[in-house]
Nucleic acid binder design. Structure first.
Length: 271
DNA sequence: CCGGACGCCTGTCGGC
DNA sequence: TGCCGACAGGCGTCCG
C-alpha cells in the first residue's frame, strides 16, 4: 500500500512521540521481513536517542546518535503509536519502546517491508543512493521527467513509477496523476512533449499534496499512526473504479495491465 | 545501459 | 462448504 502520502502521514503521526526520546527496548518477534533482520541489531539500537524522524521516497529514516534505522512498509506495513506493553496481535512483528512508555509497533501481514540498520551517511546506503528527486521538493519538475524520458521507450505510467526517476509515486497515485493530467497511461514516454510533462509534474504534486492532507489512502491494511484510516480513498478518481462512470465525463473507467500492475484510466479524458 | 519477468509473503475474493 | 487461482499499495534481482 504505502506510497509517499501514506509514509509521510505515518512520519507526521509518529515523529512527535519519538524525536528526542531514548530507546528503551527493541522487541522483534519476527525477523523474516523482506530482508531478515540481523541478530544483534538490538544491542546497537537500544540506548540511542532518536534525533529525527524523516522520510525519503517511501523510506522512513530514524536518525539515531550512532546510525540510522531505515524502515520500509512494503505492500502491507503500518506503524502505530501505542501505550507500551499492549498485547500484540497476529502480524505485529516489531515493538520499539521509548521513554514515556510509548511503543512504535510495526504490523506487516505480507512481510514485504523492511527494518534496516545503517552506519554512515544516508546517501551511502545502496537502496537510497540512486533515488530520484522528491516530487514535493524543489528540483522536481516537468523538465526532469522530460529528460529522464529521453532514450527510453516505456509506458509513461512506468516512467513515473520508477523510483530512480521520481521517488514515491506508486500504483495508485500514478493512475490518479495521469488522469488529472489527461494522459493515457500506456503512451510511450518518448511521445510526450515538454508542456505535457510540465502538466504531469504538477498533477503528481497536486495528487500527492491532497492525499497527504487526507491522511493517505486506505485500501485494506494501511492505518495512520493513531489507527485511523487514510481518507483519500474517497477522492480517488480512477483507481479501482473499473466500469464506473468517469467523474468528469461519465464514460466508463477502464482497467488494463501495464508492467504487471493494474492501471485505471478514462479512455475519453486521457490520450 | 534498458526493459521485462519473476519472486518474495499473506489474505481475500470469485468461480466452480 | 471447500478448494484453487488470481490478485493486492513495492521493488530488488535476474536475464536477454
Amino acid at each position: 500500500m504505502p506510497e509517499l502520502p501514506e509514509v509521510e502521514t505515518t512520519k507526521r503521526g509518529i515523529a512527535p512521540y519519538l524525536e528526542g526520546k531514548r530507546i528503551l527496548a527493541l522487541d522483534i518477534r519476527e525477523r523474516r521481513l523482506r530482508w531478515t533482520i540481523e541478530s544483534g541489531i538490538e544491542s546497537q539500537i537500544i540506548g540511542n536517542t532518536i534525533q529525527t524522524v524523516t522520510r525519503r521516497a517511501k523510506y522512513l529514516l530514524f536518525q539515531l546518535e550512532h546510525g540510522i534505522m531505515i524502515v520500509h512498509l512494503g505492500m502491507s506495513g503500518s506503524l502505530r503509536i501505542l501505550p507500551a506493553y499492549q498485547p500484540r496481535q497476529l502480524h505485529d512483528h516489531i515493538d520499539l519502546i521509548v521513554e514515556n512508555e510509548h511503543c512504535l509497533r510495526l504490523r506487516d501481514p505480507r512481510r514485504l517491508g523492511s527494518w534496516l540498520w545503517h552506519l554512515g551517511a544516508i546517501n551511502t546506503h545502496p537502496l537510497l543512493k540512486n533515488l530520484g528527486p522528491e516530487p514535493l521538493e524543489p528540483g522536481f519538475d516537468g523538465n526532469c521527467l522530460f529528460k529522464a524520458a529521453k532514450n527510453r521507450r516505456i509506458a509513461i505510467k512506468l516512467l513515473i513509477m520508477n523510483s530512480h526517476v521520481v521517488s514515491g509515486v506508486g500504483n495508485i497515485y500514478a493512475s490518479e496523476a495521469l488522469f488529472l493530467a489527461g494522459i493515457h497511461p500506456q503512451l510511450s514516454c518518448r511521445d510526450l512533449t515538454l508542456p505535457r510533462y510540465n502538466k504531469l509534474a504538477e498533477a503528481i504534486q497536486q495528487v500527492l499534496t491532497q492525499a497527504i492532507i487526507q491522511g493517505g489512502t486506505t485500501l485494506r491494511d494501511f492505518s495512520q499512526a493513531d489507527g485511523k484510516p487514510g481518507y483519500f480513498v474517497n477522492s480517488l478518481q480512477v483507481y479501482g473504479r473499473t466500469n464506473e462512470p468517469c467523474l468528469r465525463c461519465q464514460h466508463p473507467i477502464q482497467a488494463m495491465q501495464i508492467g504487471q500492475r493494474m492501471s485505471f484510466f478514462c479512455p475519453h479524458c486521457q490520450h
